[in-house]
Amino acid sequence: MTESEARDEICRVGRSLFARGYVHATAGNISVRLDDGFLITPTDACLGFLDPARLARLDAQGVQTGGDRASKTIALHRRIYAAATRFDAQTRCVIHTHSTHCVALTLQPHAEDEELLPALTPYFVMKVGHVPVIPYHRPGADEAAEAVAQAIEARGAQGTPIRAVMLERLGPNVWHDTPAAAMATLEELEETAKLWGSADPKPAELTAAQIDELRRHFGARW
């Protein structure tokens, strides 16, 4: 994907997420890792009305070289790229949203090391995988970036690389090889959170045998 194509794709994905209610107001951001740096949506930009020419451009060291002022989350995105590419070198896009149903789940009491969701559906297991909940830190805090990087390293070392984390009270960060693939992961995560939040009583999760079958047939990383 060329830089020009990446700029257009970031804007297309932003419009799609905004139009369907996955992001609102100026919440959320999208970045793409280039061969020699990064593109990221500007600070306080609405993802539904992005201009390809005004996306922030940064060099490989994270120094801004063009566009509007970069989102403060670029530090977190760079930590995600650095950690995630150890287990998947094709990681090229990170999306962060304040998706309603994901955030709602973290407003309920939960254990310190709890994951956001159980193995609820086969497509959640195959397309998303484990989603660690990162304890609350203020937006842009270095501690949050460090905790996310540690979660990626720990899961990768266990042989179950992750594609998403959930920042408590803020929202999910998901990553993949293209903006379209990252958006699909985000969608599956948010819709599974919606299912879990609306289910009463709560359903049983998939069995160990069912999950093993998904590993064997589809390479699920669970």
Rank of each mutant, 00 (worst) to 15 (best):
M1D: 01
S4Q: 00
E9D: 12
R12P: 03
T26S: 05
G28M: 03
N29M: 04
R33N: 02
D36L: 00
T41S: 12
L50K: 01
R54L: 06
D59A: 00
Q61Y: 01
D68G: 05
K72T: 14
K72F: 10
A75D: 03
R78A: 11
A82R: 05
R86N: 09
D88S: 10
A89V: 13
C93G: 08
I95C: 05
S99A: 15
S99P: 11
A104N: 08
L107N: 07
Q108S: 14
D113K: 14
E115P: 14
A119I: 10
P122K: 09
Y123Q: 11
F124A: 03
H130F: 05
V131N: 03
H137N: 15
H137V: 11
D142E: 13
E146V: 12
V148P: 02
V148I: 15
Q150I: 13
A154C: 02
G159P: 11
G159Q: 08
G159Y: 13
G159R: 08
P161A: 07
P161H: 11
I162W: 06
M166S: 12
E168N: 10
E168F: 04
G171R: 08
N173L: 15
A180S: 15
A181T: 12
A184Y: 00
L189R: 09
E191T: 09
K194M: 06
K194D: 01
G197S: 01
S198I: 09
E205R: 09
E213R: 15
L214G: 13
G219S: 06
W222S: 08
